[in-house]
Design a protein around this nucleic acid. Structure first.
Lengths: 284, 284
DNA sequence: ACTTACTGTCCCAAATATTGAGACGCAGTT
DNA sequence: AACTGCGTCTCAATATTTGGGACAGTAAGT
């Protein structure tokens, strides 16, 4: 019988609007429930009662799974207090980063870029409709940026995201743009993208230059310059961006930064086997 | 940096000799097998056949689980090539780090210590019979240290490890010491600890001062100075260490560093609610 | 001290969700 | 072309998981 998980059971958690409770049946119920339990803990539901409620699963079953997860190191347990994510997840997370050749190859280049610009540099890839941050070199100026490795952000309203969009058919742009423009503002201060006609016009310009700008669309006070990274088959597989606070990012500087960021992105692309295309526009 | 490891071809795991194949039954077979599959991928067994063999499970079952794991983002799949650890693991790993209040609280202090000394600083906790590295600030000198966040090392032959041992009954020291002295050398170049009588004498001295030394026992050419971090109940819950290459670590400097490292550790302890004990020795 | 609301642990019959063999088509490699 | 291994599917058998319930212990409130 396909496990019917009631989609609207519990008040949602505060940190991450992810919904570990809606799962597709697939012949691995126990596994999926266990993973969902991990995600409950990750998103702040650290007590048995809450987890049981979110998974729509009796306490006794949840206990059994939590015990196994603790035994394997995926969770940590403080008796009568709650559960925390365990050390094995740290270990696996680190290894996941290392397994991506992309990160290892890109690191020297983005470090150089960070040093040269003094600003925060990000490396990200597409994951679903979002950017997934794979690496970050913090700014050498005092400023903190709230982005973090492992975080996700909308594609259409970030520098990296727009760079990644350059590798998609323009038909998808609209969809991604509207998703952000429509979406209820997740974390308070996201201004959102420009209105579509203007946005499209800008994107078309970006496509020609092969680098993009972001003017406080994702976060007030933050501007950035991004460029896509391509692999041997000329597919966009990642993007990098240089981000900084508005005072450090006047229009003129952004214009200067464009070719620099693109050059860094190209250097990474070359590591992946990409070869500069000889055609007129420079980009196919 | 050691040899570039291509995750797709690397047959065995070099880093962690864990054995994901032997699992205890517990009423969650499917979950445990799924987790074991993840660990197979983590340790370099990236193909279906190999995973099935390691788990002692038929192909069709393994496929089913892998599909679920991919669907949930725990694994990445390159058709006809193999599986890689997925983005969700990165996300969870990062969150696991953040959930440990320890890391967040300690960060400023170890950064300050790193800046002050110019050397590599580590933060670690006990996990079983090993140190588990929770955080690392790289040296500002050119030297690379092969330690990484998420890595495990023997307790008895590392600076951090010895600092953590200060929180254990001396009866356990012997056991931990012998484990390392006996153990077949995992990664080539570990010299191992001093002979027991001498080792014990040193440890006794460390206990009085509440900071420890490591003289190339874990890695040739690397010396370090460590100190334990205590919580509100005066239990040792973590340790920090400053590590550097021998030329930067003459005996005199290590002697100077001791109190400095201890002060940093105490500062972190205070953040955890620890209160300096007034007793004569300074440490209970 | 007493109550309340949890958590953690165990047992066990019921039956569901998982298993695993096998067959088929496809992808890469020789 | 032949071969090996992957990815997908089906289905009957049953091992595995389920979940209700009872009990003891903890933490917090009255």
């Amino acid at each position: 019988m396909p496990t019917r998980t009631d989609p609207m059971t519990q008040p949602v958690d505060v940190i991450d609007p992810a919904t570990p409770e809606r799962r597709q049946a697939a012949g691995t119920q126990t596994l999926l429930r266990g993973l969902a339990a991990i995600e409950c803990v990750a998103t702040g539901t650290t007590e048995v009662k809450g987890i049981a409620a979110r998974l729509n699963t009796p306490r006794s079953t949840v206990h059994r799974m939590l015990n196994s997860l603790v035994a394997e190191g995926y969770l940590h347990h403080v008796p009568y207090k709650g559960y925390l994510l365990g050390p094995k997840l740290i270990e696996l997370g680190m290894r996941a980063l290392e397994q991506r050749p992309l990160v290892a190859l890109a690191r020297p280049h983005i470090e150089a870029l960070a040093q040269r610009t003094g600003d925060t540099v990000h490396l990200g890839v597409v994951d679903g409709d979002e950017v997934f941050y794979l690496d970050k070199i913090p700014s050498t100026r005092g400023l903190e940026m709230r982005s973090r490795v492992g975080l996700r952000m909308p594609l259409a309203s970030t520098g990296i995201g727009k760079a990644l969009m350059l590798g998609m058919p323009p038909s998808r742009w609209r969809q991604l743009h509207d998703a952000v423009a429509t979406a209820p503002d997740t974390v308070g201060g996201r201004p959102g993208p420009l209105p579509w006609p203007k946005y499209e016009k800008l994107m078309a310009g970006f496509l020609r230059r092969d680098w993009v700008l972001d003017l406080e669309e994702n976060e007030i006070g933050v501007r950035c310059v991004g460029a896509p990274v391509r692999d041997i088959s000329n597919q966009v597989v990642a993007a990098i961006s240089v981000a900084s606070a508005v005072p450090y990012m006047p229009d003129e500087r952004m214009a200067e930064l464009g070719p620099i960021v693109r050059a860094a992105a190209d250097a990474i692309s070359k590591e992946l086997g990409w070869k500069q295309d000889g055609s007129a526009t420079g980009r196919p």
